[in-house]
Amino acid sequence: MKFFNEESDFFGLTKLKERFYSSDHDGLSEADREYINRIKGQNPFGIISMFIGGVSFAFGPIYVAFPIITIIFCFLTCGTFDREKEDNPWTFIIGFCLALIGLFMYLRGVVHELIV
């Protein structure tokens, strides 16, 4: 986990993640702010990983670069997951698995019927 945190700090992903979570809460009482901060959310990098994992699944059997980039992205950003603030790591896992399926389809020469 320390390796992932160091990598995310090196690539500036921690600052980008904090930018997604910071917002102005003018006009809210202190109790409202505490309630909003207690609600668990989703990691934005997890959502991105899942989305590009779907792209890798769809186009990976033809273009092998999509699954490879997605797998690297999932490994680099998985360390940004914080159990106290975020709901679950399944978005990273789903994106990674979809990218693996796309990569294995490319290696086996299997192509989706809808794409070709």
Rank of each mutant, 00 (worst) to 15 (best):
D82Q: 14
S29F: 00
G12Q: 13
D24H: 08
F81W: 13
E7F: 08
H25C: 09
G46V: 10
L98H: 04
P44Y: 04
E6K: 14
R83L: 04
F4T: 11
E18C: 06
C97I: 12
G46K: 02
L100E: 06
T77W: 00
P89L: 10
G46D: 07
D26G: 03
T80H: 00
Q42K: 05
K2C: 07
T80E: 13
V64W: 11
P89C: 07
V111S: 10
T91A: 11
G60A: 02
T70Y: 01
K17A: 04
V111P: 05
V111D: 06
T70L: 01
F20Y: 12
F66R: 01
I62T: 12
P61C: 03
L100Q: 05
S23M: 08
M50H: 02
L76Q: 14
V111G: 09
S29G: 11
Y63W: 15
G12Y: 07
C78S: 13
G79I: 05
I36M: 10
L107R: 03
I115G: 05
F10C: 06
T80L: 15
K17G: 07
C74P: 02
F73W: 09
S29K: 07
T14E: 15
N5C: 12
P89H: 06
K15V: 03
W90V: 10
P89Y: 06
M105C: 03
R83C: 03
L76C: 14
C78E: 09
I94N: 01
M1F: 06
A65L: 15
A58Q: 04
N37K: 08
Q42H: 08
Y106L: 00
Y106S: 02
T91C: 10
R83V: 11
L98P: 02
H25D: 08
I115H: 14
H112N: 11
C97W: 02
F57I: 02
I62K: 11
I39N: 01
G109M: 10
R19H: 07
K2T: 09
F57Y: 13
C78Y: 11
G109F: 11
I47C: 00
I94D: 00
F59V: 03
F4I: 04
T14R: 14
F4G: 15
R33L: 08
I71G: 04
E30Q: 11
M1S: 09
V55F: 11
F11K: 15
E34A: 13
F59Y: 15
K40A: 10
I93K: 04
V110I: 10
F66Y: 15
S29V: 05
T91W: 05
A65H: 09
L107M: 10
N43P: 05
I39Y: 06
L107E: 05
S56P: 04
E34Y: 03
L16G: 15
I52C: 12
G41E: 04
G109T: 03
I115F: 14
I52D: 05
A65T: 09
G46Q: 07
S56V: 01
K85H: 10
A31S: 10
T14C: 07
G41I: 07
F75P: 01
A58L: 14
E30F: 03
M50K: 03
I68R: 02
R108T: 13
G79Y: 04
V116S: 13
I36V: 12
K40G: 07
C74R: 01
F66D: 01
I48G: 01
I101G: 00
L114A: 08
A65C: 05
S8P: 02
I36N: 11
H112C: 02
N43A: 06
K2G: 08
G54I: 05
